[in-house]
Amino acid sequence: MKGFPLLREAAWLYRGNDADPSALLRLWERREAGGWDVVLVDPLGHDELRQAAHLDAEDDARAAMAKVYAQGDAEGRWDVRRHGRPVGFD
């Protein structure tokens, strides 16, 4: 729909044997204004842990996501979904 951002990718970071995720990473496409948003949040809603980047190109947004994935790989495992479909644990 015009005007609404589209969620293109979401990933939850699980540390150790934790049943609950410790981070949520999302990639949004801004359709009306153009550009991309990469948003990292605490799934428990602590706003002070929220980080966001607004980028013009999809390649730049995906590169930013790759950096966050690499940092998270050192701490746990990611459950990634693209376009609503599971990619599995990376």
Rank of each mutant, 00 (worst) to 15 (best):
V80K: 08
G3I: 09
G45Y: 04
R15W: 01
A53C: 05
L49N: 12
A57L: 15
V68A: 03
A19K: 14
P5R: 14
R50G: 04
F89P: 06
R26E: 14
R81K: 14
D18F: 02
G34V: 08
R50W: 09
R31G: 14
L55T: 11
N17D: 15
D37R: 05
V38G: 06
A52H: 08
L6T: 08
A11E: 05
A10R: 14
W28H: 01
E29Y: 10
A23S: 01
R50N: 07
R30F: 05
V39K: 11
D47G: 06
V39D: 12
K67C: 07
M1G: 08
E29W: 10
D56R: 13
L49E: 03
K2F: 15
S22E: 01
D56N: 09
D79I: 00
F4S: 02
H46D: 11
D59Y: 04
L55P: 13
G72N: 04
L6V: 09
R82W: 01
D18Q: 09
A70K: 07
L24S: 03
G35Q: 10
V39S: 09
Q51E: 13
R82A: 09
E58N: 12
L49C: 12
G76N: 01
A23I: 00
L40P: 00
A10M: 10
V68I: 13
H46S: 06
L24T: 03
E75V: 07
D79N: 06
E48F: 05
A11V: 06
V87E: 14
G35M: 11
L7V: 13
L44Q: 05
P5H: 13
K2V: 15
R82N: 03
G34T: 05
R31D: 12
L40V: 00
W12V: 00
L55I: 11
M1F: 02
F89L: 12
M65E: 01
A53K: 11
Q51D: 10
D90F: 00
R81Q: 14
G45L: 02
Y14L: 13
A61D: 09
F89Y: 07
A23Y: 00
D73H: 10
D18N: 11
P21F: 06
V87D: 12
